[in-house]
């Protein structure tokens, strides 16, 4: 009796698994194929891209990439994106963890107030701040400078929270020992606690890198100088048809594919960590 039940359940779930698998494969194609089209199109000639949007290139060519690097500002945009992203990521990792540590461990008057203010700040939607941000950047005289591109992004409230939560999970006894040995607060933070917060630091790094690499709206209001365009701004100008690119699909797809590579690498390197938010999180 028990054996038959198990048997039947097994059969049913095997059929179910096959159906699930088929549905998943179909869905995976839907999610992946657009990127395949993107990459393939970038290796096509213009006429080929329009006439044959789905298949392999008739003739493989790197013409689009040559034009991207030869006659557009792509290298400049790339460099600007790298500069801004590295500065923002470094700033966020450092300042967010400093503040997160203070909120988690140090007792100072006004801590509760600071905490509530951060919660309130997180609730403000980003696009609402476009005009306000421009006003302050303009007033401070850092419009059209790297300072204007970088400074406003240098900390983020969400990152402070991630660090705070993590620091709270580290046993306090470790710090006590160092403190009794006479280490000052910064020393304790820098050489004792921070090295223990590696997983959270990696999370912050990924989020900051991805966030600032993909950021567009802030850069639109912080600068108009073409020398300060970063990748999102530059590729957006290509997409909307600047430089006579309105029907130059291989160029556009190449530009979009290339700008995706750095975040894609980051994603694949830290895949376990990103996806791991689910695996083994609270299990057991």
């Amino acid at each position: 009796m028990a054996a038959t039940t198990t048997h039947r359940a097994g059969q049913g779930s095997r059929l179910g698994t096959a159906v699930t698998m088929a549905v998943l494969v179909l869905l995976a194609v839907v999610y992946i194929y657009p990127f395949v089209v993107q990459v393939l199109t970038s290796f096509k000639g213009n006429a080929d891209a329009v006439a044959n949007p789905l298949g392999m290139p008739l003739v493989w060519t790197v013409d689009a990439y040559q034009r991207l690097f030869g006659s557009s500002d792509y290298p400049l945009w790339f460099r600007n994106s790298v500069v801004v992203t590295l500065a923002v990521t470094a700033g966020r990792v450092f300042f967010n963890s400093l503040a997160g540590y203070a909120l988690a461990r140090l007792r100072f008057p006004g801590r509760g107030l600071v905490f509530s203010c951060l919660v309130a700040v997180m609730a403000v939607p980003g696009v609402v701040l476009l005009i306000p941000k421009f006003l302050v950047i303009n007033t401070l005289g850092i419009y059209n400078t790297f300072a204007g591109l970088i400074l406003p992004l240098l900390v983020d409230a969400a990152g402070v929270f991630i660090m705070k939560n993590y620091f709270e999970s580290i046993p306090a006894s470790v710090e006590e020992a160092a403190r009794i040995d006479g280490a000052g607060p910064f020393r304790v933070f820098w050489s004792v606690v921070l090295p223990m917060a590696r997983p959270a630091l990696i999370t912050i790094t990924i989020l900051s890198f991805q966030g600032s690499w993909n950021e567009l709206s802030h850069f639109i209001v912080a600068a108009s100088d073409r020398d300060l365009f970063n990748l999102t701004r530059g590729v957006a100008s290509l997409t909307s048809g600047a430089l006579g690119s309105s029907a130059d699909y291989p160029l556009k797809m190449g530009a979009a594919a290339l700008m995706t590579i750095p975040v894609a690498i980051l994603f694949f390197v830290f895949q376990k960590r990103i996806m791991g938010t689910s695996d083994g999180a609270v299990k057991g």
């Binding site: 567009l216 590729v235 957006a236 290509l238 997409t239 797809m253 700008m259 995706t260 975040v263």
Partner: peptide, 8 residues
């Protein structure tokens, strides 16, 4: 990025 996906 939204820019790359929009282009695509």
């Amino acid at each position: 990025s939204t820019v790359a996906i929009t282009s695509l």
